[in-house]
Design a protein around this nucleic acid. Structure first.
Length: 297
DNA sequence: GCGTCCAGGTCTACC
DNA sequence: GGTAGACCTGGACGC
């Protein structure tokens, strides 16, 4: 029998927009049942133990969490759900800012702007490296392989994202041959070892007091993390100064704001500069607007 | 079937 | 600090 409990949501929160805020809901262990508006995930104890499968959906203005499995810490599950859906992020200033722009007012109106993230920064970090220099299809393959080959199963067979310890126990060759990570293989082996041994602690980035530029410098010390990846990770830990320009974002900007013509990154940066510390989030919402206008929200 | 291009970039060497 | 070339993979495309 699944156990069900409920979480109250903030006033300015849209479950639909959050679970569709970017591609993460399409990467295991997340699974999105859009027809029924259900986000499935696999959550664990503090050290990755006792994985349980959970489904999250809206229910009378609250969130209904259904957990399949025994022997789990309810407080940790609630913490994880609040974390992945960004329930404790204060976007008041952001919404007030976009309200003043006619073309962006939809963001505040729809209560959008919360970017889905994984239960741990480590998982977001690995997944972000999986997005670099490859198609989205390959990103999904690498993530699926990581979960299927190194994740611990919950009672229903769905697997959690592997822990740093689990990832540190396999070789570079494993990442190359089994995960199909290509040149990223050595990066994953090195990163897992560094995190498992305590030399690198991505979770500390969540409440880092470093200015964004310095935190970005810290992130870029990790092999495989460059400008785009660091900006993306900064957004996932709550800092939105970087635009995280990749080929997809650039293409959307060209189409929407430059008549389809290619332009320099500086022009894109200049376009969003007036939004100050929120520019990265404004830019992301702006280039993804079409997702929400083309689907039933 | 085969070759080429490119995708939600980054690293290293070199200047 | 800026730039060129190399780097894995897999899907799309043209032939």
């Amino acid at each position: 029998m699944p156990k069900t409990f409920y979480i109250e949501t903030p006033e300015y929160f849209s479950f639909s927009h959050t679970i569709n805020s970017h591609g993460w809901s399409g990467l295991l262990p997340f699974e999105l049942d859009w027809e029924n508006r259900i986000l499935q995930c696999v959550l664990t104890g503090t050290n990755g133990e006792n994985p349980v499968s959970a489904s999250i959906k809206k229910s009378n203005g609250n969130l209904e969490i259904e957990v399949f499995g025994d022997n789990f810490d309810e407080r940790k599950i609630i913490r994880d759900v609040r974390h992945i859906l960004r329930l404790d992020d204060d976007l008041t200033d952001f919404h007030q800012l976009v309200e003043r722009e006619k073309s962006l007012a939809w963001i505040a109106e729809k209560k959008a702007g919360r970017l889905l993230r994984s239960p741990t920064v480590f998982e977001d970090l690995v997944k972000t490296v999986c997005t670099t220099n490859c198609s989205w299809a390959l990103t999904k393959i690498m993530t699926m392989n990581l979960v299927e080959k190194l994740g611990v199963p919950a009672e229903n067979g769905k697997k959690a994202f592997p822990t740093p310890d689990a990832m540190a126990k396999v070789s570079t060759e494993f990442y190359r041959e089994e995960i199909r990570a290509g040149y990223r293989a050595a990066y994953f082996a090195e990163l897992a070892e560094a995190v498992a041994s305590g030399c690198v602690n991505p979770e500390s980035w969540l409440d880092s007091e470093l200015p964004a530029k310095e935190l970005k410098r810290e992130m870029k010390k990790i092999k495989g993390v460059g400008d785009y990846a660091a900006d993306n990770l900064l957004k996932l830990v709550g800092s939105y100064e970087g635009l995280a320009l990749d080929s997809w974002v650039r293409a959307q900007f060209y189409r929407k704001h430059n008549d389809g013509a290619v332009c320099a990154d500086k022009q894109i940066e200049s376009f969003y500069d007036k939004f100050g510390k929120w520019r990265g989030l404004v830019a992301w919402c702006d280039v993804t607007e079409r997702w929400f206008s083309e689907r039933d929200f």
